[in-house]
């Protein structure tokens, strides 16, 4: 008297290959290309110490005689630079590898920070409702309308006023992560709160409440897995935004210290030489930054469409 005949069991791998999301990936050239580009850039950043031909931070390898070497050529001293060298004789290619490391580190950490903060607050606001919700969402609204860069600049200004100068350099990267992360949480909170409010009305939540499951476990076990889809999308797009924000702050001169340059710092340095013809010092870091942001953005965009079946 059973009316389900179980279909032939499929392996986990076969299931993934057959899934709609993988199909959408397989048939989207944009998604494939951008994921490959992003993967190359990320791997290059992670393995920078092994890939980079020079150590851009060691004063021993820097020689002013190597300065301003154009791309794909040898300097007066016979050193070869694929992307050329800057005014201090630093290899632009190596600097980019190490620079993307800093950019990615700051970007990923900031997004993680924003995600944890935003998802928790969004869950609480959406689940509790009432005054808790009003207060959290009002703060999020205000936060959203105060742009990240502005908040980061303020935090920087304050940090400079409070911290002793010796510590400022060491703290800069943490201040950066904190500032960018703090300004992005509201996005997560809004989305998660919206989905949470939809989910908590659903009967599977009532079913759990009836048997006395504690609210915190309802949130974590039941609701959280159901609101993570959009979080992934915002996280991806947020990563691109965070990388851009970091570059902008470093470009404005308030980001990471020049001793540990990020892509934004390299662009700031390169800008000084753009008008005198040494275009490569700016061009290559800029292209790397744009490729990184664009490929992550494209991935996020694809993910949003793939997770939203109505758009297909």
């Amino acid at each position: 008297m059973t009316d389900i005949t179980p279909s032939a069991p499929k392996g986990r791998f076969a299931k993934i290959i057959d899934s709609d999301i993988f199909f959408s990936y397989r048939t989207s050239p944009v998604a494939i290309v951008s994921s490959i580009v992003a993967a190359i850039l990320v791997l290059a950043a992670i393995f920078a110490p092994w890939i980079a031909p020079y150590d851009p931070f060691s004063p021993r390898t820097l020689n002013l005689m190597n300065g301003f070497t154009p791309p794909m050529s040898e300097s007066m001293l016979g050193a070869f630079f694929i992307f050329g060298s800057d005014h201090q004789g630093r290899d632009v290619f190596s600097a980019i590898l190490y620079g993307s490391r800093v950019s990615l580190l700051v970007g990923v950490s900031a997004v993680m920070f924003a995600m944890i903060l935003g998802v928790s607050l969004g869950l609480i606001a959406g689940f509790r409702g009432g005054l808790t919700d009003t207060v959290i969402m009002r703060i999020a609204d205000i936060q959203l309308s105060f742009p990240s860069i502005l908040i980061a600049l303020l935090i920087f200004g304050i940090a400079r006023g409070i911290l002793p100068p010796a510590q400022q350099e060491n703290m800069a990267i943490f201040v950066l992560i904190f500032a960018i992360g703090l300004s992005d949480w509201a996005q997560f909170a809004r989305t998660v709160r919206g989905s949470t409010m939809v989910e908590r009305q659903k009967d599977y939540v009532s079913a759990a409440r009836i048997i006395g499951v504690k609210p915190i476990f309802i949130l974590i076990r039941h609701i959280l897995p159901n609101v993570l889809g959009p979080v992934l999308v915002i996280g991806t797009i947020g990563l691109a935004l965070a990388i851009i924000a970091e570059a902008t702050l470093s470009f404005l001169g308030v980001g990471v210290p020049p001793t540990r340059p990020s892509l934004g710092t390299l662009i700031r340095i390169g800008q000084q030489f753009l008008f005198s013809g040494e275009w490569w010092i700016l061009f290559f870091p800029a292209i790397t930054l744009v490729l990184l942001a664009l490929s992550v953005n494209l991935l996020g965009d694809w993910l949003r469409d793939a997770l939203n079946p109505r758009l297909r």
Binding site: D203, Y204, S206, H222, N226
Partner: peptide, 9 residues
Amino acid sequence: FQDPYASLN
């Protein structure tokens, strides 16, 4: 519950 689509997680 009424809606069998919303009552199962």
